[in-house]
Structures are given as structure tokens and as C-alpha cells.
Design a protein around this nucleic acid. Structure first.
Length: 298
DNA sequence: CTCGATCCCTGGACGC
DNA sequence: TGCGTCCAGGGATCGA
């Protein structure tokens, strides 16, 4: 659930609350979402959290050594997955269920990572390994220029929804904001990237940026149980126009919002405002027919 | 290159 | 009240 606006909200909170603190010790519990748990235990104690920023859907805790040996960049990467939460707690507070990582800070608090589903990810990376990891990801949605945005999308025949979700194309967009931006730009989620005109893509880019900025302003969308590093829920879900509105009226034309599966993800759109490309309607009918028997099992 | 399918994981919703 | 089943979804991976 945490996408760019939610991660930005959490990162800003942590920048305010734990930047400058030193990590005294580390306790790991379940570690199957950590790249290299031994490296975390070995490297983090003694490091100072210099600053916290967002990179795509990751939080980047920039670390510095007490004695700056060289100019090697070091960071703790934290991905919240679906249900991750990273927040400071007072050391005496009881451990919540699913607390998998505790970083003891030098001011009587602990940074705790709580994640029931463990779809998140945590990694300590430094130097070239850090650089290489960050290079795997695409453009920053809030900064990407029109030309680069168009080039990245028109160069692929994959469907636009899949491209928006592909972190190698853009970093930080997830299911909610993909659907919301496509609804705003009146683009059907199954259109191929290559089929989109530059003018359409410019409308999409502007819509995406506007929506992301607004969502950040409102501290993100709280769908299930998302809360930021201060334990506060977001409010942007009240502004959703497509996501989660299956069967409800489109705010533009009154038609019923539909839900289909695109790129393996639940996809919400207005069938009237967002016109289907050739062939898509037929394909959907075929799929429906094929799926029906499965539902009536037992 | 692009696709769908499958897996990971748990809690919440729902049906009985 | 309780149990079983389904579903949510970001990302990795694999075979078509």
C-alpha cells in the first residue's frame, strides 16, 4: 500500500524525528525480508543517521561513521512493502506483534520496523553496491521531464498500467496512483505505451504529478492501516476518483467504475471516459467466460 | 520483449 | 463463536 506519497510522508517524519541520532545496537527477529542480516548487525551499530530521504518507494537512511574514513556513501534501504512501518518508539514501550527489527538510538528511543506480511525489504548498502542498486530504478515521477517520460513509455508496447507500475520505468508509482492518474488523464489502462501520443502522455504526466503532490500534502492514502512515522493516518483516500470505487458513479460522467485485472493487478477505471483500445473489450469477454466456472466451485 | 501464473505473507471480510 | 475460504498487493521468478 505505501506508494510514493506515503513513503514520502514517512521519510519526512523520520527526517524530523531521528536524523542526527546514532544507532547504538541492533536486534533482528525475523529476517527473511533482509538482504544480508549479518551485514546489518555488523555495520549499523555506531553509525549516525545523517538524513532520511525517499527514493522511489524506498526510504534511504543515509549513514555516516563516527570517524569519516573516506567518502564512501552508506545507507540503510527500507521498503515498506504492503504493511511495513518504520517509526521511533520509547525503549520501554512493549514490542508490537511483528516487530522484526529494532535499532536502539542514543536518546532513549528505538527505531522499530513492524511488518506483518513481510513484503518489505531492508538492506545495508555502501559504495558501488549502493550506486548499482539505485541505478536499477527509473525516473523520479515528480521530477521527470516531458521528453523523458514520453520516451520511456512510447518505447514499449507493454500496457500503460504495467509501465506505470514498473519501477524500472518510474520509481514510486503503485496501484492506487496509477489508476488515479489514468482516470484523470482519461487513458484506458490497457492502452499500449507505444500507442500513446505525446500530447496524451503530457496530460498523464501532469496529472500524475498533480495527484502525487496533492497526496503528499494530505499525508498519503490510508487504505487498510497505513500510518506514518508519527502514527498519523493519511487523508488522500477521500479524494480517490477510481481506485476502490468499483460499481460507483464516475465523478465526470456518471457511468459505473469498472474493475479489471491488468498487469496482474486490480485496475479501476471509467469505461466511458477511458475508452478501450481495439481488441481489449473482446479479450475481456473471453476472460470472463473462461473464469466463470471457477467461482461456483463447491 | 511481454505476458500470465505462482509464490511470498497475514489479517480482514465474508459465508455458513 | 468459530472455522474455512478468498482476497489484497509489490516484487521476484519462471516458462510460454
Amino acid at each position: 500500500m505505501p506508494e510514493l506519497p506515503e513513503v514520502e510522508t514517512v521519510a519526512r517524519g523520520l527526517q524530523g524525528s531521528v536524523a542526527g541520532r546514532r544507532i547504538l545496537s541492533v536486534t533482528l527477529r525475523k529476517t527473511d525480508f533482509i538482504d544480508d542480516p549479518v551485514a546489518i548487525e555488523r555495520e549499523l551499530p555506531g553509525r549516525q543517521i545523517a538524513r532520511v530521504e525517499r527514493f522511489g518507494k524506498f526510504m534511504l537512511l543515509q549513514l555516516v561513521r563516527r570517524v569519516a574514513a573516506d567518502a564512501v556513501q552508506e545507507a540503510l534501504l527500507v521498503h515498506l512493502g504492503m504493511t511495513g512501518n518504520l517509526a521511533p518508539h520509547f525503549a520501554g514501550q512493549p514490542l508490537a506483534k511483528h516487530t522484526h527489527v529494532t535499532l536502539v538510538l542514543d536518546d532513549g528511543r528505538e527505531l522499530r520496523y513492524i511488518d506483518p506480511r513481510r513484503f518489505g525489504r531492508m538492506a545495508y548498502l555502501a559504495g558501488e553496491a549502493l550506486t548499482a542498486e539505485l541505478l536499477r530504478f527509473g525516473a523520479e515521477p515528480l521530477l521527470v521531464a516531458a521528453e523523458e517520460f514520453s520516451r520511456r513509455i512510447q518505447g514499449s508496447r507493454a500496457r500503460i498500467k504495467a509501465l506505470l507500475l514498473d519501477q524500472r520505468v518510474l520509481r514510486g508509482v503503485g496501484n492506487i496512483y496509477a489508476d488515479e492518474s489514468l482516470w484523470s488523464a482519461r487513458i484506458h489502462p490497457a492502452r499500449s505505451g507505444a500507442s500513446l501520443k505525446s500530447a496524451e502522455l503530457e496530460i498523464l504526466r501532469k496529472a500524475l504529478q498533480k495527484i502525487l503532490r496533492k497526496a503528499i500534502q494530505m499525508r498519503g492514502s490510508s487504505i487498510s492501516d497505513f500510518v506514518d512515522a508519527e502514527g498519523i493516518a493519511g487523508d488522500y483516500q477521500q479524494h480517490h476518483k477510481a481506485y476502490g470505487r468499483e460499481g460507483e458513479k464516475c465523478f465526470r460522467c456518471g457511468a459505473k467504475i469498472k474493475r479489471i485485472i491488468v498487469a496482474g493487478r486490480s485496475t479501476h477505471f471509467c469505461p466511458v471516459c477511458q475508452r478501450a483500445p481495439r481488441g481489449v473489450k473482446l479479450a475481456q469477454k473471453k476472460m470472463k467466460r473462461a473464469r466463470r466456472p471457477r467461482a461456483s466451485k463447491r
